[in-house]
Amino acid sequence: MTQIYAYIPFKNGSAEDVALEYPAAAKKIDAAAMLTAVVTGSGAELDSVATEMSKIYEQVIKVDNQALAYPNAEVVRKALVNIIPKDAILLVAHTTFGMDIAPGLSVKMDAAYAADIVDFEGIEGTRLKMVRQELGGAVSTHVTADISAGAVITIRPGAFAPVDGGAANGTITDKSADAGDLASTRKFLEVVEAEVGDVDITKSDVLVSIGRGIEEQENIELAQELATAMNAVVSCSRPIVDAKWLEKSRQVGTSGQTVKPKVYMAMGISGSFQHLGGLKGNPFIVAVNKNPKAPIFQVADVGIVTDILEFMPELTEAISSL
């Protein structure tokens, strides 16, 4: 029987949303698989997450060790190598923690590796068929992996429909004694919180958001003028912040702000999942992009194929004269 383990990330004593998404993913791999949640950490916080998980999963493994109090990927990896059976499939969320731990773990487990999976299409013989994206979401691919010696797979948060938790009455097994030597040459020091900027984009109902399509720093003015006309605020995608054209606090996405506007104007933004990950609350999305194949058009409500540098001033003028 296929054995699937799901690594549960948590913060401040409660599991992240992906904990409810793993069961749906596991079912698509093999509906008959045995699914086990794995929680590592320390003390009361760990216990409360393990208890929470026993209401979703029939089997829960907890690993309690002071060295696991903060999820330092190098330390957690050492513990998991000793705890996950060699021929099992381990699911990890494709987050900054998942990206940190999973590739090396697959090497140490001598298992197949697949990253950022958005769908599973079942097992045929020894091969598992999966769907992932490349080139910033511009194309999808089917990949297969030989899982006969196990697999480590990261799944994209939000890609699998969450199950209803609460019904299970799972068993919690304490495997702390099996964790082994957790000494590491990478030491966690502290988390430095992101700086707060002069504008709070999370407070605005309407965002005029610019991406690499703005092309030059001077052109940001065009977006600012449109935003002023719409009584909106300018936000942006990551490359604009990397180029130091706007403050980090204006960045929408998984490594930036999570926003819940009513209307989101995506101007010259391709629509990568890290960008869209910061967009919540089902806003009305208007996408303007000169590439008709840009992935943003798959999630937008309204799309316009044109050059934003020409379009924005015309829209500003039309709105101003209303």
Binding site: A114, S140, T141, V143, T144, D146, A149, Q298, G303
Partner: peptide, 18 residues
Amino acid sequence: KTRRVDYFVPDMGEGAEM
């Protein structure tokens, strides 16, 4: 152990109204 089988364009439903 892993192999790409093909590329495809997923059917994402309706998408944006253009």
